[in-house]
Every structure is written in C-alpha cells, then in structure tokens.
C-alpha cells in the first residue's frame, strides 16, 4: 500500500500556488472566493482522484463558501492539499473535516493578512514609492512594484509549503506565539508610520493673518540704507543669515503659524480624528471624501484655506 501512495509533486503544488494568484477572479456576493478556490485546487484534484464520481465530489466540496485575505489563502491551501492527499490515499477524512479546516483558518488568518499587508506593508511601500514619484522619479513605481511582488510571491509559496508539510497541525502552530508576534509587530509599525504619514502628507494650510506686527528698527533689513551694488547684496545676506534680521519691516503671523507652534501638523491630526469618528458613526467614506472637497472649495472661496 505504501508504494502506491499518490503524492502531490512539487510541480503540482507550484501549479496550485500559481493558480491561487487568481483566487479572487470570480469573487461574488454569494460565496465570495469559492470559484477561485476551486480553480486553484484543480491540479491537485486531477492528480489525486481518477473516477468521475470522486472528481465531481471533490469539485463540489471546494465550491463551498470561502473568503479570506487573498495571500493568507496560501497556508490554508497547503493544509487542504495535505488533507486531500490523505483522503485520496484512504485515510478517513470526511467533508466536514476539510470544510472545518478551511472555515476555521480563514477568519483568524484574514485577521493577520489585513493588518500586515493592507495596513502596514502597502501603505509603507506605497508612501515610499509615492514620495519618490511625486518628484518625478521612476524608481518610485519600480521599487513599489518589484518589492511588493517579491514579498507577495515568497510569502504565498513558502506559507503554502509550510501548510502542506504541517498538515492539520498548522492551526495549532500558528495560533501560538509566532502569529501573535507578527500581528503585534505589524500593528505597532503600522500605527507608528501612520502617525508620520499624517504629519507629512495631510496638508491643511489656514491662510488668514492673525496679526501684523510692526518690527522695531534694527530688527529688519533697511533696504534703502544698504550700500549700492554687490556690496549691498552681500550686506543684506549677512544681515539675514547671521544676524537673523527680518526681510520686511512687518512680521506677518498666519493662523497656520500659530497652530504649528503648538505641534506641526495639529490640524491634520484633528481632521484625521474627525474622520475616524465619522467612520465609527457609520458615515460612508465616500460621503466624507465628497464633503472634504466641498469644504476645500468653500474654504478657499471665503479665504480660509
């Protein structure tokens, strides 16, 4: 019996991994990723089952409801491959066990995939690429695209292999320390970087002038008293750089300057908190986005922004 055991080769497993790239291709409101899941399993089902009845049963088994983060589907596929292999070789693995493993893993793992990939890795790589790209640097998009796909593919292949070799033990292994550690680290990183992004990239500039103060004599450069020509320019630069004299005889303070002297980016922070609060109140993000544009236009027209 042992010699005739059907095993999935590395080639079969690679085929499954490649197909799982298209997991969400037929994403639908009824059973979500089920079509893509079944599509991914086909190379394995072909190899493991030979009769039409067995194949039909396996296909139907894998068209059940399934939904998780698309990358963490890989370890689940790995485990399912191991279970299907056992089943094809005569071990008693019933439909409920396979379905149970899929459903049992998809929730917790989506809880890892979303913060790690969507909320930490993509904002970080995206912000890195975008900050280069905004200066017209082609490296921005290239770094983003290449780094993302390398990480993604490495993650998908190795976790699928891990799932395959660990079999059904994986759920126990992963719910232990390692998984917790990665999730914690990702959310710490994510929050840290988010704080930075809000300071850097949410731009609000209040233009109203709060005060215009006439400076004392000697605190500003007296242009009409400078020597003529190059000598005058030199004197002006020395006054400005070394003595810190003001360029004009008046010091203008805008509302923005006042806010910045509290903490730079305070207005951006408050706007973000407002958005968070609105989102928690179940206001649709679309409505908030549109409202912000309206505020931007009105604020500009009345001279506030």
């Amino acid at each position: 019996m042992a010699e005739s055991r059907i095993k999935l080769s590395k080639k079969d497993r690679l085929a499954v991994a490649w197909r799982s790239t298209f997991l969400q291709g037929s994403w639908n409101y009824e059973r979500m990723q089920n079509g893509g899941w079944c599509f991914s399993m086909i190379p394995a089902i072909k190899k493991l089952y030979k009769t039409k009845e067995d194949r039909a049963a396996a296909l139907k088994r894998h068209l059940e409801f399934f939904n998780t983060h698309p990358y963490v589907a890989s370890p689940i596929l790995g485990v399912t491959l191991a279970l299907e292999e056992d089943r094809a070789n005569g071990t008693k693995v019933d439909d409920a066990a396979i379905q149970g493993v899929k459903v049992g893993m998809m929730g917790p793992l989506a809880g890892v995939g979303d913060p790690v990939f969507w909320f930490t890795l993509r904002p970080m790589l995206g912000a890195l690429g975008a900050s280069l790209a905004m200066g017209g640097n082609i490296l921005g998009p290239i770094i983003f695209f290449v780094a993302w796909n390398l990480i993604r593919w490495a993650f998908m292949w190795y976790t699928q292999e891990f799932g395959y070799s660990a079999g059904s033990k994986i759920t126990d292994d992963m719910s232990g320390g390692m998984l917790q550690y990665v999730t914690s680290l990702a959310s710490i990183m994510g929050m840290f970087v988010l704080g930075g992004l809000i300071e850097r990239w949410v731009t609000i500039n209040f233009v109203p002038k709060v005060s215009t103060v006439k400076l004392q004599e000697g605190a500003y450069i007296e242009w009409d008293k400078l020597p003529k020509g190059a000598e005058g320019i030199k004197q002006a630069l020395i006054d400005y750089n070394d003595k810190g004299l003001s360029l004009t005889s008046e010091k203008v303070t805008t509302l923005q300057d006042n806010l910045n002297s509290l903490i730079p980016g305070l207005a951006a922070l408050l706007l973000t908190f407002l958005c968070m609060w609105l989102l928690k109140k179940k206001v649709s993000p679309i409505i908030i986005i549109v409202a912000i544009f309206i505020v931007g236009i009105l604020g500009h027209v009345v001279g506030l922004l």
Binding site: P115, M189, M191, L194, T272, K280, G296, I297, H300
Partner: peptide, 30 residues
C-alpha cells in the same frame, strides 16, 4: 479649492486604517 481638498482627503484613508488597527496598546506608537 479641489487641490486643497485633495490635500486633506488623504486623511480619510488613514482614518479607515487607524480604525481597523488601533488598540490602547499601540496608540503611543502613533
């Protein structure tokens, strides 16, 4: 005005992410 709005609208995306991730433990890092 639209350009100004574009500078602010970034906050919505960040707010969505923070709402998903924030716990008392990680706020100091923010």
């Amino acid at each position: 005005g639209m350009t100004i709005g574009g500078g602010m609208v970034v906050a919505v995306g960040y707010a969505m992410v923070i709402n998903m991730m924030a716990t008392r433990e990680v706020w100091p890092f923010f």
